[in-house]
Simulated scan of single mutants.
Amino acid sequence: MSSTTIYHNPNCETSRNTLALIRNAGIEPEVIEYLKTPPDRHTLVALIQRAGLTVREALRENGTPYHELGLGNEALTDDMLLDAMLAHPILINRPFVVTSNGVCLSRPSERVLDILPTAQRGAFTKEDGQPVIDALGKRIG
């Protein structure tokens, strides 16, 4: 089976929903709790690039020291933003998911469905009660 990795924060509902969708496809991913084991610079840059994002798009504002560090300043370079993300991993938006089909920042959680190598195996409802997958394993909406 293909290798799947999730850069996960168990305290984040979106991250938990993404992990549950991966498992609903019959995949047991490598789970990297990135706050405990942050990616190195090379890995972080590769995740961002492969997901088709800019460094700024991969930066998390809510619940982070984003404002205190002045990271909204448009004059800051990608290298400066990366330095901040590496010094404060909570600034890395989540969850990044890596599969044989690509990399995505799975926000909202159902974005992961676009890169999973296997289909969903049954119904799935997000923690907030929103149905995402029907009983036949098909995406709703």
Rank of each mutant, 00 (worst) to 15 (best):
M1V: 01
S3C: 12
S3I: 11
S3H: 15
T4W: 06
T5C: 09
T5N: 06
T5W: 02
Y7T: 05
H8L: 15
H8D: 03
H8Q: 08
N9Y: 04
P10N: 09
N11F: 08
S15T: 02
S15F: 15
R16P: 06
R16M: 15
N17A: 14
T18F: 09
L19I: 10
L19H: 02
A20C: 07
A20M: 08
A20V: 10
L21F: 15
L21P: 10
R23T: 02
R23I: 06
A25C: 04
G26N: 01
G26E: 11
I27E: 09
I27W: 01
E28K: 05
E28F: 15
P29D: 12
V31M: 14
E33N: 07
E33V: 05
Y34R: 05
L35V: 13
K36C: 09
P39I: 12
R41C: 01
R41S: 04
L44W: 06
V45S: 11
A46W: 04
A46F: 01
L47Y: 02
Q49F: 10
R50Y: 13
A51I: 00
A51C: 11
A51H: 01
A51F: 04
L53P: 00
L53R: 06
R56A: 15
E57H: 11
E57V: 11
E57R: 04
E57Q: 14
A58Q: 06
A58P: 04
A58H: 07
A58C: 11
E61W: 13
N62L: 13
Y66D: 13
H67N: 08
H67I: 14
G72C: 14
G72H: 14
N73C: 12
N73L: 11
L76I: 14
L76H: 00
T77E: 08
M85S: 00
A87I: 03
P89Y: 10
N93C: 06
N93E: 01
R94C: 03
F96K: 01
T99D: 03
T99E: 00
T99P: 05
G102M: 11
V103T: 15
L105E: 04
R107C: 13
P108K: 10
S109M: 04
S109F: 05
S109E: 03
S109A: 05
I115H: 10
A119P: 06
A119D: 03
Q120F: 00
G122Q: 10
A123D: 00
T125D: 08
T125I: 12
K126H: 12
K126W: 09
D128G: 10
G129R: 09
Q130K: 06
Q130D: 04
V132S: 02
I133Q: 01
D134C: 09
A135Y: 05
L136N: 08
G137L: 09
G137E: 14
I140P: 15
G141V: 12
